[in-house]
Design a protein around this nucleic acid. Structure first.
Length: 242
DNA sequence: ACATTAATTATGT
DNA sequence: ACATAATTAATGT
């Protein structure tokens, strides 16, 4: 019932869209053309699901523009954001991990544009294109590392440090320089931050307020900019307890 | 050192 | 006007 379903059979997308992303970096121009012709391009409104946890993983995706939150939902509605996908990254690649359904949901945080392919093509690409497998598994590996680091943070660090780390990670992938510092390039609520750090929006709100008072950050609704990245890095480090 | 509850205010459509 | 976001204080574990 919403009008964002303008599925377009990939009309003349340029090969340069793919040539810079790792998984396709080793392909020839003709091969890129072939891959692109099999892709579907779609636009998504902000806040809609690209796919849902548990659904048949019939396609895999690449984000061209926008931001995707990869999240799971607890027994009663509590969101856990496990990952943010910046443009140029593959996501929904359940097939690469041997899954038949998506292990998490992918939600757009802003209006986004994505390419997608039928999952069957994954195996074909792996077999056919030199470097597709190795390169894409590299990025999968990097993502696993990120998540591992995140788990360590959740388990060992204090709330203040976790939130600092979350903000730093976000600035690394979506940071945009502005006059007063580095702004995070997409709408981010306290709720979102708390969902990434396993705390509550209230605690996040209090902390941000405190940091704002000290001039470390500034924030409007859904927009956070870091004024003193260096101080934030310090806060993100665990303090020795003796 | 943090969550929870609840009341209050600000902000975007 | 309405819903969603953010702040703040009080209270609980």
């Amino acid at each position: 019932m919403d009008s964002n379903t303008n599925l377009k059979p990939t009309q003349r997308l340029d090969e340069s869209l793919l040539s810079h992303i790792p998984a396709f970096s080793r392909l020839q121009k003709a091969q890129l053309r072939e891959v692109l012709d099999q892709a579907t391009c779609k636009r998504y409104d902000a806040g809609v699901a690209v796919f849902d946890e548990g659904a048949q993983a019939d396609r895999f995706y690449m984000l061209l523009d926008g931001v995707i939150e990869v999240m799971r939902i607890g027994p009663l509605g509590e969101r856990v954001i496990s990952l943010h996908i910046p443009p140029g990254q593959l996501f929904g690649i359940a097939k690469a991990l041997g899954h038949v359904t998506y292990p998490a949901s992918a939600i757009t945080t802003v209006e986004s544009i994505g390419l997608s392919w039928p999952t069957i093509l994954w195996d074909e690409y792996v077999a056919k294109y030199e470097g597709f497998a190795t390169e894409s598994y590299k990025t999968v590996g990097a993502r696993v590392n990120e998540m591992n680091a995140h788990i360590m943070e959740l388990a060992t660090l204090h709330v203040e440090q976790r939130i600092a780390n979350a903000l730093l990670r976000l600035t690394n992938q979506a940071g945009h320089k502005v006059a007063t510092g580095i702004e995070i390039n997409f709408p981010l609520t306290r709720q979102d931050l708390s969902d990434m750090t396993g705390t509550t929006l209230h605690t996040v709100s209090r902390l941000l307020s405190a940091w704002q008072r000290v001039g470390l950050v500034t924030s409007k609704r859904k927009r956070i900019t870091i004024c003193r990245p260096h101080q934030l890095v310090e806060l993100s480090q665990a303090k020795p307890s003796y």
